[in-house]
Amino acid sequence: MTLYGHHVPKMASLIVWVILWEIVGRFGLVMLFPPFTEVIAAMGEVVTSRSFAEAIRITVISYLLGLALALVLGIPLGFLMGLSRTADKLLNMWVNTFLSAPLSALVPVFMILFGLGTPTVVVTVFMFAVWIIVLDTRAGVRHVAPSLLEMSRSFGASWSELFKIIFLAALPEILAGIRLGMIRGVKGVVIGQLLVSIIGVGALFSLYQQNFQMAHFWALVLLLFACALSLAELVARLEKRIQYYAGERN
């Protein structure tokens, strides 16, 4: 947007919202919001606490494990569905089901199957992240230009060479799937820990909730949000660097 002929940066309005938040908090207009300055002050306390470091460690480990599992299983499954009609017809329904199902309802199941610990959170991250990776990989493999494969075949390419062509041609879609999977995975790691509630940030949240430490709670939420947003931004940037060759496909 431009204001009096000056270009105003896109996310600058967040400053306006923060000021508004402070006013609302100062005058106690909406109970939900303590003054923003208090939240910032609490943030220092939260970050320096020992339990925070531990919570972050558990969160990062379970997130990375769940995501790795989603990649290792999701990409081959997507490939299989993209290449085999039979596999696609058998599995497509389930992939789409899990993609739009309220997966939070499954967390109680994971809790009794895998216990109240990291494994449950890992499985939750996996379930949140994997389906979009499968679906995008499948779409990418499906949309590889037939002429590219014919070209490779016309020179007498081997199966492994054809496979390489399919993988590289599908890479932009696969990466898009990974990016969306990563964002979903963040939601998974938070929801998983909230429900398990005795490990990681979930334990911190319940601690602050029980002690009515609103500012601390908000501080932790904001930290999580910042992490999630920077992660999404980082992946989007990486993706753009690969996208240079995706310009051709529409």
């Binding site: 230009a145 590219l148 014919e150 590289l168």
Partner: peptide
């Protein structure tokens, strides 16, 4: 050797790599 209507170039490969592809496969 086949020349394709939609060119069938590999978007991830440079002009040189594309032009050398048939030889690479061989």
């Amino acid at each position: 050797a086949f020349v394709f209507q939609d060119f069938a170039l590999m978007p991830w490969a440079s002009v040189l790599e594309n032009a050398a592809y048939g030889l690479k496969v061989q």
